[in-house]
Nucleic acid binder design. Structure first.
Lengths: 190, 190
DNA sequence: ACAGAACGCGGAGACCTTCTCCGTTTTTGC
DNA sequence: GCAAAAACGGAGAAGGTCTCCGCGTTCTGT
């Protein structure tokens, strides 16, 4: 069901060009990049952009599916290399770092773990949640994660940690620090 | 140093009107409310708005100083009513709830705990950090908070928790939940 | 290979927002 | 009062989003 009907040649061409231009523009100017400008870069009219991608979200998603899928694959690789508890933290670190380093990715993944509207079951959302679920279930089975914590909670908190880290000057150094604070808790180890 | 020179009568009048209109507009449309629209509501020209408040941040700050100061005062009230550890959590709950309930407040307080630019020592930032510091120091003295956690970290994590909660459908219920996850940690109590 | 239908293109333009500039009006100090 | 100083206000430039529809391209059937 990827494509009920094959796309017309010119449509496919433009679609591809737009994706490339979008990736560049988002990397350069963040998620707020001008859409008309992306169309111009791609050498198509703005109508074409809006036909293929009705909303900014849709374009952002399309431009980053690859990365999100890579992140999901990493989850499985890490799961094979390490014990469940460790694997979860390692993956969360990579995920959070990705959200900081790849401009626009945080916004995309944020809306991927939202309930709101809820009609929107996006590809990125599903992919991310799937990966998170596998790691969380394994960690649960191993007793390496509180039982009352759901996969979606973990993903949302990761988003929160990314946001918190972003506020610091050297986000890089803050990520592992804040992530460990969240996993171990703010209370002193008594 | 509140005001080196007394404001001209009309200036003061307009300043006040703008503040009132801004509070309404931000409450109604969130931090993204149209500035020209605020000017219109206040019955002044847009030039006047921009003269008094050069940036959206400045207006947001001016519109919410009152609330932020109230939040800071609450910190001290709570500190008198409860033991340090409890007081800190109680205040963080109120703070986080405020960020969710009062539209635009989260954005304002977010930039208040940023390092970036750093030239900006805003009133709200100072007020908030002051309140946070007092509670954190008390908690430290009592051994109710990890020694390696600084006041600014706590504020940033509160911002992160607010962000994470916002992603859920019933933010209200999520705040205490996520806040307790952060304080107690995701690891199971072994 | 060709015609006609179907589909997609593109960019002008309507509408919105931010922010500046400067002629005009209000206030103030004397 | 009056002149200087201070502040006003709103037109308009710049730049963004998104739609609409006449026109060009591609596909399909014969």
């Amino acid at each position: 069901m990827t494509q009920v009907k094959p796309m017309r040649a010119d449509a496919r061409r433009n679609y591809e060009r737009l994706l490339k231009a979008a990736a560049e523009a988002f990397a350069e100017h963040g998620e707020g990049a001008s859409l008309d400008d992306i169309a111009k870069r791609a050498g198509v009219g703005s109508g074409t952009l809006y036909r293929h991608f009705p909303t900014r979200q849709a374009l952002l998603e399309a431009a980053y599916v690859g990365r999100v899928e890579a992140l999901a694959r990493r989850a499985d690789v890490i799961a094979q290399e390490r014990p469940p508890g460790e694997a979860l933290w390692a993956w969360l670190t990579e995920l959070t770092e990705g959200m900081i380093q790849v401009r626009g990715l945080k916004a995309l993944l944020g809306s991927a773990v939202t309930d709101a509207g809820s009609a929107a079951a996006t590809v990125c959302g599903t992919t991310l949640k799937g990966a998170g679920e596998r790691l969380v279930h394994a960690a649960h089975a191993e007793g390496a994660l509180r039982k009352d914590v759901e996969p979606i909670d973990v993903l949302r908190l990761a988003h929160g940690v990314a946001t918190a880290s972003e506020l610091a000057d050297d986000e890089g150094a803050c990520i592992p620090r804040y992530l460990s604070l969240v996993t171990e808790g703010l209370l002193p180890t008594t």
